[in-house]
Nucleic acid binder design. Sequence first.
RNA 1: GCGCCUGUAGCUCAGCUGGAUAGAGCAACGGACUUCUAAUCCGUGGGUCGAGAGUUCGAAUCCCUCCAGGCGCACCA
Length: 554
Amino acid sequence: MKNRLLKLLEGSLRTAVADGLLPPTEPQSIELEFARDPKHGDYASNIAMVLASKARKNPREIAGIIADRIIDDDGILQKVEIAAPGFLNFSLRKNVWASLLGDVERLGDAYGTSNVGAGKKVLVEFVSANPTGPLHIGHARGAVVGDVTASVLKAAGYDVSREYYINDAGNQMNNLGKSVLLRYRELLGQEAEFVEGHYRGDYIKDIAREILERDGNAHLERDEAQVVPLFTDYAAASILDGIKEDLRLFGVSFERYFSESQLYENNGVAKLVRKLEDAGFVYQDGTTTWFKTTLFGDEKDRVVIRQNGIPTYFAADIAYHNDKFLRGFDTLIDIWGADHHGYIPRMSAAVQALGYPKDALKVILVQLVNLLRDGKPVAMSTRAGEFVTLREVVEEVGRDAARYNFLMRRSDSHLDFDLEIAKKQSNENPVYYVQYAHARICSIFNTAGERGFTIPAYKDIDTNLLKLPEEIELIKTVTRFPEVVVGAAEALEPHRLTFYLNDLAGEFHSYYNKNKVLSDDPALSNARLFLVGCIRIVLKNTLNMLGVSAPEKM
RNA sequence: GCGCCUGUAGCUCAGCUGGAUAGAGCAACGGACUUCUAAUCCGUGGGUCGAGAGUUCGAAUCCCUCCAGGCGCACCA
């Protein structure tokens, strides 16, 4: 709809330019938006005011010139008004709105999808937690934001992959193996001495016990340098399996788990560093190798190969991002905890040094979550093994409520997650508000069937019967959906979907309480059934994108 | 000290990339179930958009300076 109006506007502008009344303008500068206030019609454009200074005419005069030259062949416009400072307000004929409902029926599950992404390949990397412990609540938010961002991009026509980067090559992995070894020795009656950096959670004991059961005390007398890698590998694999299972229960899946350690195969990281050195982005300083990230605005250069010859995490990450590009992805989206924001300039520098445009990498920062119970903070520390795991949360509050709650705020806004509120099946919990709307519509359809109605098709209804103000509003909201998805995709803001859902569900609940869908009037009943059917499709499609179920009964 | 994020109703937050009279939920108060699901709806009150200056037809939104909170500033990941 918006595009059709834009065409009319463009046409009018061209004519005005040809008539010598207005200076030439690029079509991109035309803005057209939904009018918030019904008094302003359906759509409004500020084009006249934008052109005012350039055309040296007053905005109302320009608006008049444009309005006079709009050729509405299809007859979709009821009127075009010029309002206060120079807005052009477009009012559509009422049945134009209802005519758009045909799209909803035709597209069904696909309604809301579009092709603005044009098949561009996008890789969304998220979670990427080290396999040194189970996922906790802090990872949960990033998991949902990443997952839903990917879904939204896919709906907007991008070719999307989800990927999890396993940091399984650092010093911490060694600590993990040692930690398990200590527990193992402890189980065999030896004194265990934990120091800073060791992992102490119960899951470490469980893993130690598994090894003990499998191998007995065979590892007790062997050299630590030999044993630790064995323990590390075993623990990492075991923990990663647990992580995958946690994510599965949370409704998150990945196309690929990419292991950091595989970057080191065939000296991959070292080769890449050498390549960057040849390109002049890397230099040696005695025994240390530096990346000139300052060339791209970072505040200082960064080490890529340490004095001890071991590449830094950053070096591997450059190689990883390079690998992503080599696999054909045009845009890389990384979801990071907000505490990593200082890392952005160097990663951005790396992308540019590799020869890709700056905006080929987009980072979504996700603020940390304050976990509360009854308004009181729940203390957490991974190292000490005190944390609420993702799985505990999912088991306690349910997948739907957990996912929805993480999408109720902008990513870069702090989020309080209160377990007691998320658990409540009440109006304090918006997820049920939306699901209830869906269940209600399903219920209407059940009753309709019992009363002998058949499910109406678009061609069989009289759209002119949908003329109540709240019906027009609902139709507008339903037809706005594809634009909402595109907006969320372009801004990388999945939370827009939850706000949209709340609007739609609210309008529906209100409509439901005020009007009967099923009545003695068959034609009206059919028209309304069709309308709520469209609403159900949009609710379901949106909930699907969020990874939240759309129950038929509650 | 430097950088990033945040500051909007009593509380938790939106505000569509600069638009028209700043919105929603919760909390408070008052109403609506012999009716397609009351996990719902209707109504009432509630604001110096942290402060100050600036840019322009127009600012919660953009620039600058402060104030407050959070987070960063490694040859850790």
